[in-house]
Simulated scan of single mutants.
Amino acid sequence: MTEAVPHPYSIEVSPLMKPAGHFGWAMRKHGKLTERSDRPHVSEQKAHESALAAMERDLNPAAALRRR
């Protein structure tokens, strides 16, 4: 995970108990939980990429509106 996460955000990627071998993520802003993954990801890298996309949506709410 070489991509820098800007302050005040932090991303935690962790293995899931079920399904085994999958990963989930949690995004925090100023230490408080902002969002967490709602689906398992097949690799740690995929989970991190998904968390970065969620962070981008949080940083730019107008971009999230255009997706709909």
Rank of each mutant, 00 (worst) to 15 (best):
L33N: 01
Q45K: 12
Q45F: 12
R57E: 05
A4N: 13
H30I: 11
P15L: 00
T34W: 11
T2D: 05
A53C: 14
A20M: 02
A63T: 01
H30R: 14
R36N: 10
P6E: 12
R28L: 10
H22E: 00
L65W: 09
A51T: 13
S50M: 06
D38M: 05
N60G: 05
H30A: 10
M27S: 04
A26M: 11
L65D: 12
S50F: 15
R67N: 06
S50L: 11
L52Q: 12
R28I: 00
R57I: 04
S14Y: 01
F23S: 01
M17N: 06
G21F: 08
R57L: 06
L52E: 10
K18P: 11
A63H: 04
D58Q: 11
A51K: 11
R36G: 04
V5P: 00
F23L: 03
K18M: 14
D58I: 02
P40D: 07
P6L: 12
N60M: 11
A26L: 09
K29R: 15
W25A: 09
E56M: 02
A4G: 01
P40I: 02
M17F: 00
D38C: 04
T2Q: 08
A62V: 10
G31I: 02
L16N: 02
R68F: 09
A51S: 13
V13E: 15
R28Y: 07
L59M: 08
M55W: 01
A26V: 15
E49F: 11
H30Y: 14
K32P: 04
D58C: 12
A53K: 15
E12C: 14
K32I: 03
P6R: 14
F23T: 05
M1Y: 07
R66F: 15
L16S: 03
G31Q: 02
A53T: 14
A4D: 05
G24F: 13
A63Y: 04
L16V: 02
S43Y: 06
E49K: 15
A54S: 12
E44H: 13
M1H: 11
H30T: 10
S10I: 10
A26T: 10
E56P: 00
R68M: 04
P61F: 04
S10E: 12
A63G: 01
A63C: 00
R67S: 03
L59N: 08
V13R: 10
P19M: 01
R28K: 14
E56N: 09
I11G: 01
M27Y: 07
D58W: 09
D58H: 05
V5Q: 06
M55F: 03
H48A: 13
Y9R: 02
K29F: 04
P6N: 14
R36T: 15
L52I: 15
P8V: 06
H41A: 14
G21T: 01
S37G: 09
L16Y: 01
E35V: 14
M55R: 10
R39K: 10
R57K: 07
V5I: 03
H41E: 13
D58A: 14
D38H: 03
L52C: 09
T34V: 04
V5F: 07
L16F: 05
P61Y: 07
H7T: 06
R36F: 03
M27E: 02
I11E: 03
L33Q: 01
G21K: 02
K29E: 06
E44V: 08
A20N: 04
E44P: 11
R28F: 01
V5K: 03
K29M: 12
W25Y: 08
